[in-house]
Nucleic acid binder design. Structure first.
Lengths: 117, 117
DNA sequence: GTTCGTACTGACAAAGGTGTCAGTAGGGAG
DNA sequence: CTCCCTACTGACACCTTTGTCAGTACGAAC
């Protein structure tokens, strides 16, 4: 089930990126940062994403210890995902990334190709 | 010349990741953070990377305004790359990423699979 | 008794990033 | 005259990630 970089690189930047990297992981984490959600809730909240991808990403996030999976084995199965205590240490990092990205987008929009510096 | 995500996503996290993402970009930036370097110097300093990849990544970094290309048109061509003023705004972000990654690697090594939470 | 919903899996095709290989120009060394 | 060095390009194969499609179990609703 390949979703992110296969082997664990000793480079810390790569290590961090391998956790975040994956087409929808950022979005999933973003949704979960508002509180626990069921699989189907998550899927419906990101319509462009397929269920297959959701599950593959969730499994990786769980494997990496970022997300917690809690199953109430009722008969229509009910699984709830939430950000783990460890996962919360990731959130400030995402915020830094997000801040830079926002600035980058502004720059990309504003300057078609003006000042480089 | 595909190296990173094709279309510009409106998501700031994706925007930032598209700048960093690429097998060798982190390493290249790391090397350049010690000062300007020639193409061949860079290539030799990262032996596992091919010249082709170096150049593709450098071109993207230049396109994104992170890296500056300075050509002295002497007869054996001499091109020097350096981190731009804008590129330096990225460095603290990389440091945050790196710090988290380092911690993550420690955790991954120490805990084969011990405490989750 | 067929259909719906849940959370998932497996097989497979389509995209896209990465790597390999050869080739470019022009001066210097041998 | 040939080879080496520089920085770079183009064609192409490979492999990983992404996406599509069908199928699983089980109970509840109709």
């Amino acid at each position: 089930m390949p979703v992110s970089k296969k082997e664990i690189s000793p480079c810390p930047i790569d290590a961090m990126l391998s956790v975040i990297d994956g087409r929808w992981k950022g979005t999933i984490l973003w949704r979960l940062s508002n509180g626990p959600m069921r699989t189907s809730e998550l899927r419906r909240s990101i319509p462009e994403m397929t269920e297959r991808m959701l599950i593959r990403h969730l499994q990786e996030l769980v494997r990496d210890g970022i997300v917690l999976r809690k199953q109430e084995s009722s008969v229509p199965p009910c699984v709830r995902y939430s950000i783990s205590k460890y996962g919360w240490t990731l959130v400030p990092v995402l915020e830094v990334i997000c801040a830079w990205g926002r600035n980058h987008l502004r720059r990309a929009c504003a300057a078609g190709r003006t000042a480089e510096n």
